[in-house]
Amino acid sequence: MRAFRRPKTDDSTYDLNLAPMLDIIVSIIPMLLLSVVFVEITVVETPVPQAVERAVAAQEEKNEVQITLSVSKTSGFRLVVNEKGQAKETNIALKGTELDIEALKKEIIQTKLRYPNIFRVELNPDESVPLAEIVAVMDGIRTKSKNDPTITFTDVTTGKPMETDLVFPDVVFGNVAGG
């Protein structure tokens, strides 16, 4: 009797050759490592008003609302809203020895709700205020937080009401050229 022999078949499993893939990855990684950004740098817009432009703008906006925010390390914030020659002043005292940015945010939202079509604030920091605190103030008045009330302004081109998260995104250093 002849012995039963099973036919020879190839194994259905096989090894995938990953070496070319590894070559590609090893080539890409050094290139990416060279161009990788671990710290993202952005910019904060702070246009400086030219003296002449400022004078012209002041003339043009004679009857408009002007909002000025003074920052001091000794007395805190002083928010002045000048509407048609009448000034309304609000003072926010220091919280201990630090600037009370939370109180400023609340006050600035109330001001924005009163004047929703105004987006510019003139910032006048004292000479002793460090840049980090100036940027923190600018961040505080630029956008509203989730819990703040909705801000609706009138679109200049369409005349329709629009919602925005921006409070006062246009911050100008008012005291650069004297003052």
């Binding site: 740098i41 910019v43 817009e45 246009p47 030219q50 940027v135």
Partner: peptide, 8 residues
């Protein structure tokens, strides 16, 4: 006159 402050 258009100064942009670099920040992190």
């Amino acid at each position: 006159s258009d100064v942009k402050i670099a920040v992190m």
